[in-house]
């Protein structure tokens, strides 16, 4: 900084450390709880220091799950979450890229109409139209299927706009040079545009993977068959036990497992993640 104010520096570090601690506190408590046997979480207060049942608890949930959630192994729930997240991320990216390519590089009747049609979806979060959307998916017999979990969430105005913005910044001369070099539209898309979009695609993939993994309301509605539960929905099912204290040590282990993949993605691909997030503003 510009002038020397040592106490301001100390204050800054202090505030930041406090922020980091408050951010991490819930995770620490959850982690600790997931390493204890059932009886130490029955009464009194939750322990503050890890116990000895780490492997036992995690092995239990991964293997056999909880009766409250239909005894589906959490491993299987994670598999479902993974499939759903990947289908949503890949699906959104593919249909957004080709739609943005069509809108930017072609002129055709109803082009503006299509543009606005896609734009409108930006304004309709799934939460506000759940009942009729559920009706559509039910009548298409897509309940309890990976398709039903992912396809209705695949159309995305945001991703289409991101790619549109990016394509508009690609120099015109590149397309002209490609035309003179004899490349048709699809050849241009695959040989020039997609390689240039690599980082954008990767950044968007990170964001969309997290978006897909964390879906809650939609899987809650379309999965009545336990074998299609995603892990986030599974946790809710484990909590919703009547008249009994939930099996906290196992629920907390499941919670840790539910957070692990997206948090790892964010931390390991931080640069891409930030790029993907910040570009949405533009």
């Amino acid at each position: 900084m510009i002038e020397r104010r040592p106490w301001l520096n100390v204050l800054s570090h202090f505030v930041l450390c406090a922020g980091v601690l408050v951010t991490a506190l819930p995770i620490w408590i959850t982690f600790v709880a997931s390493t204890h046997p059932a009886d130490s979480l029955m009464s009194g207060r939750a322990p503050l220091w890890p116990g000895a049942h780490l492997f036992e608890n995690y092995a239990t949930v991964l293997d056999s799950g909880l009766r409250a959630a239909g005894s589906v192994p959490v491993g299987m729930m994670m598999w479902n979450s993974l499939i759903m997240a990947l289908m949503i991320a890949v699906g959104k990216i593919v249909i957004s890229i080709i739609a943005a390519f069509g809108i930017v590089y072609f002129r055709f009747p109803l082009r503006r109409t299509c543009f606005w049609l896609i734009f409108v979806t930006l304004m309709l979060p799934v939460e506000v139209r759940i009942l009729p959307t559920f009706g559509v998916v039910a009548s298409l017999e897509m309940l309890n299927s990976y398709w039903g979990l992912s396809v209705p969430l695949i159309a995305s105005a945001t991703a289409t706009f991101l790619f549109r913005q990016f394509f508009l910044t690609v120099p015109e001369e590149l397309a002209e040079a490609a035309r003179i070099d004899g490349a048709g539209p699809l050849k241009f898309l695959f040989d020039i545009l997609l390689p240039l979009s690599r980082t954008n695609i990767a950044a968007l993939f990170v964001i969309l993977f997290i978006f897909g993994w964390n879906q809650y309301l939609w899987p809650l509605l379309v999965t009545t068959d336990e074998s299609f539960y995603t892990i986030v929905v599974g946790i809710q099912r484990m909590l919703a036990v009547d008249d009994a204290e939930p099996a906290w040590h196992l629920i907390m282990a499941t919670t840790m497992l539910a957070m692990l993949p997206p948090v790892l993605v964010v931390i390991c691909m931080q640069r891409l993640f930030i790029k993907g997030l910040i570009e949405q503003e533009k």
Binding site: V20, I29, R45, V232, Q236, A258, M259, V265, Q270
Partner: peptide
């Protein structure tokens, strides 16, 4: 500071629910 972004809202709810659990919450 950024990783809570990756936590699902429902899961975030569970984390705080546990800390404030009326019988055993820290």
């Amino acid at each position: 500071l950024i990783w809570p972004y990756a936590v699902a809202p429902a899961v975030a709810g569970v984390l705080w629910f546990f800390m404030f659990n009326p019988s055993i919450g820290t």
